[in-house]
Simulated assay, not measured.
Amino acid sequence: MRKFFLIALTVLLAALLLVGCGGSQPKKIVVGLDDNFPPMGFRDEKNNIIGFDVDMAKEATKRLGMAVEFKPIDWSSKEAELSSKRVDVLWNGLTITEKRKENILFTKPYMENKQVIIVTANSKVKGKADLAGKAVGVQDGSSSVDAITKEAAILKSFKELKKYPDNVAALLDLKAGRIEALVVDEIVGRYYIAKKPGDYAVLSDHFGAEEYGVGLRKDDKELLTKLQKALDEMKQDGTSAKISKQWFGENIVK
């Protein structure tokens, strides 16, 4: 009887330990993001957080058997949010830079964001050289302005660099012929023109590129390995391409 009691007690303690450790409950990953960055992460008319990166994170965490929570943060304080463990990953069009690598562990790049040139579908502008003497639009204060400024000779050739409060207004002016090209983040540009198929074209020429990755804490190497495996599998089986086409009209996953 005593032996049976000890065995039963051991089984009970083991069960309690499993429950205490989360047992069958999947671990939750908290994704830090800017919820005002369409199409990567933003709120729809019902205030739900949606976007390309949101769909990618949902699919990856599902493959890991983990729950996911999307937590809007002050994007300018993203590294502090990550290091303080208020979020587990940063996944919202996060550019990989050497400086950020000092404090953040990155996945391999999953997307390359170029500063693309958008023209109307019937435009005679086929490359940067054709922008000479043309009115070119750009969103004021965007990274596109910096990208164009770095190519001083090309900028000098423009008839005008017209700055807009947002890219929607610039696209309307492009369609109306008030400007002849628009320089914009590829992810943003493709998102908007996908809604107007046949109206616009994206040129192969561009004003530079940057790579996006998922950011983790430096000591989360095990999670990085698992997450990278999920991202690799998503790319190989076409899931990433499918998500990309839904948001951008074509596959722009790296």
Results as ranks from 00 to 15, higher is better:
residue 214 V to T: 12
residue 125 V to R: 10
residue 75 W to G: 00
residue 51 G to C: 05
residue 209 A to V: 06
residue 1 M to H: 10
residue 89 V to L: 14
residue 54 V to F: 00
residue 134 K to D: 08
residue 194 A to S: 15
residue 128 K to Q: 11
residue 47 N to A: 11
residue 207 F to Q: 05
residue 167 N to Y: 12
residue 139 Q to I: 01
residue 172 L to I: 01
residue 191 Y to F: 14
residue 130 D to W: 12
residue 138 V to N: 03
residue 254 K to C: 05
residue 246 Q to N: 13
residue 215 G to I: 02
residue 177 G to M: 06
residue 57 A to W: 03
residue 227 L to E: 06
residue 168 V to Y: 11
residue 252 I to P: 02
residue 18 L to W: 14
residue 33 L to N: 02
residue 184 V to D: 14
residue 21 C to V: 04
residue 189 G to R: 10
residue 217 R to I: 00
residue 26 P to M: 09
residue 58 K to W: 03
residue 190 R to Q: 14
residue 191 Y to N: 09
residue 170 A to T: 01
residue 154 I to Q: 06
residue 121 A to C: 01
residue 103 N to D: 08
residue 140 D to H: 09
residue 104 I to R: 04
residue 46 K to T: 11
residue 63 R to K: 15
residue 211 E to D: 14
residue 206 H to T: 05
residue 54 V to K: 01
residue 226 K to M: 08
residue 146 D to P: 00
residue 197 P to H: 04
residue 81 E to P: 04
residue 85 K to H: 15
residue 135 A to N: 12
residue 163 K to E: 13
residue 217 R to N: 13
residue 235 K to E: 15
residue 186 E to Y: 01
residue 3 K to H: 12
residue 28 K to E: 15
residue 246 Q to R: 12
residue 134 K to E: 13
residue 172 L to H: 11
residue 117 I to A: 02
residue 132 A to H: 03
residue 187 I to M: 08
residue 110 Y to N: 07
residue 224 L to S: 05
residue 35 D to M: 03
residue 32 G to M: 10
residue 214 V to E: 07
residue 239 T to G: 06
residue 225 T to M: 11
residue 19 V to M: 13
residue 76 S to E: 14
residue 35 D to R: 03
residue 103 N to G: 06
residue 63 R to T: 05
residue 17 L to M: 12
residue 112 E to F: 07
residue 248 F to L: 10
residue 244 S to V: 06
residue 83 S to F: 02
residue 181 A to C: 12
residue 238 G to N: 11
residue 237 D to Y: 10
residue 24 S to F: 11
residue 167 N to I: 00
residue 208 G to C: 09
residue 108 K to N: 14
residue 12 L to K: 03
residue 27 K to T: 13
residue 180 E to F: 07
residue 73 I to P: 01
residue 64 L to P: 09
residue 57 A to S: 10
residue 86 R to L: 11
residue 9 L to Y: 08
residue 170 A to F: 03
